[in-house]
Amino acid sequence: MSEFQIRKDNYHTNRVVATDLSESDIAAGEVLVKIDKFAFTANNITYAVVGDQFGYWQFFPPTGKDVKEWGILPVWGFADVVASNAENVAVGERLFGYFPPATYLKMTPTAVSEYRWIDGAEHRAPLPSGYNAYRRVLAEPNYNKAMDDYRMLLFPLHITSYCLYDNLQDRNWFGAEQVVVISASSKTSIGLGYALSDDINAPSTIGMTSQRNLGMVTDLDIYDSTVTYDNLTSIDPSIPTVIVDMSGNGEVLGRLHKHLGANMKFCSNVGFTHWEDGGMGPDFIQQRSEMFFAPAHIQKRIKDWGPEVFEQKTTAFMQSTIQRSASWLKLTQLHGLNGLADVYQDVCDGKVDPEAGLIIKM
């Protein structure tokens, strides 16, 4: 049994640590799950960048000796119950949700219903509830195991895409007539691009990307136009603009804010695909910028619409985006935590092709 840990003060440094968790360790009301597979994307690096700010380090405390400076990045994936001392949760049950990159996890099922339950582990109680919910996929009427890879890869990203779109629409696009999506090749950006292109009432869209990824972004045909970071001044500064930034690249944001000036109506800061380029600089307009936290928007919409309506809307969106993404996604299966370690530096450095979907099979 083992888990993948990284240094909280230096995300590049990682290690695979052996653990002594066993089936005999589970107490009354607990289950042990064996993690089957999980996806790994730049989004997981974002969890590290904002780990202290949003509590991501708290979900799965590392085990072993000398762990004070180490943490575990959460991942989205599937796991199977291999031992159970909990009522109404049987061995063999399959779960989709938030897991550590590890071989096993001890959990405490609470609020058990037909389709899901909540991990009621004490240390997780203060954390966003959406991350503590686990889908009982074998109970889903249309569950198809062949779609697991797409689901775990795109669900956590495209649920954010949907929330971003819904937030922009709900706030009347902040008065903007064009939307600039920075790091347009990221999977979350593409999900947002699908939503915007499907809405005939949405403002025009500009996808901003690197020269390396320009061809891929253009071929998607979801943005009205594309620009590279090098020629962002080709964007018309006379048009009121809203920015959705997935990059966290302070240098690019500073240049774009300065270029747009008063017509930079709002900047939604979402991800950190270029997390090493942080530090927003003097031209960044803080007063009209805001960090977007998808779990908060999810809770708002569940309160507004009720959980069933929210589920219907997001499920329909996901089904559509997964179907369209399957045409360009190139799934790459890696084996075990050592397979993750082999590719981890490339993810940190942004060297993984945007078409790649990294799947870690345990």
Rank of each mutant, 00 (worst) to 15 (best):
E311W: 02
N85W: 06
S234N: 10
I118D: 06
G64N: 06
T218A: 12
V82G: 01
V67W: 02
F155Y: 15
A102N: 09
D346Q: 15
S325V: 13
Q286R: 12
F99S: 00
Q312E: 15
D236S: 10
I222C: 11
L168Q: 06
F293H: 10
I72Y: 01
L331T: 06
P295Q: 00
I6P: 00
S238I: 12
P109K: 03
V242Q: 01
T188G: 03
L334V: 04
R171I: 01
T218I: 13
I302N: 11
S289T: 04
L331V: 13
H297T: 14
K37F: 11
D149H: 10
R136Q: 10
L196R: 04
G97L: 03
S189L: 06
S183D: 05
W328S: 09
Q312C: 06
T108P: 05
Q299H: 12
G175V: 12
T188L: 08
S185N: 05
N88I: 02
W70L: 12
L260R: 10
L337H: 02
M246E: 10
L358K: 00
R255Q: 15
L260I: 14
K8G: 13
Y150V: 06
P101Q: 02
W117P: 13
V67R: 10
L127T: 04
I222N: 11
T63A: 15
E87F: 07
T19C: 12
F54M: 10
I322K: 01
V181Q: 08
Y11G: 08
L168I: 06
L358S: 00
D166N: 13
G271F: 12
V81S: 02
A125E: 05
E114T: 11
L358W: 00
E30I: 09
P109N: 09
T315G: 04
Q323R: 15
L331H: 06
E251W: 01
V89W: 03
I206N: 00
Y344R: 02
M147L: 15
G193F: 00
F272H: 11
A184E: 01
D236H: 05
P141S: 10
E122Y: 04
Y194I: 01
P62L: 02
R255S: 11
F292M: 07
A39R: 03
S2A: 14
V270H: 12
A83T: 13
G261P: 09
G254E: 08
K265L: 14
G357A: 12
H123M: 07
R116H: 14
I6V: 11
E30C: 05
M362E: 13
D166A: 08
S289Q: 01
P61Q: 07
S204H: 09
A18G: 10
H12Y: 15
N10A: 05
G248C: 09
K8D: 07
E276F: 03
Y104F: 14
V179M: 09
V16K: 09
A102R: 05
S289K: 05
A133L: 15
S210C: 00
E308Y: 09
L337F: 07
K258Y: 12
R7F: 10
L21F: 02
M318R: 06
S289W: 03
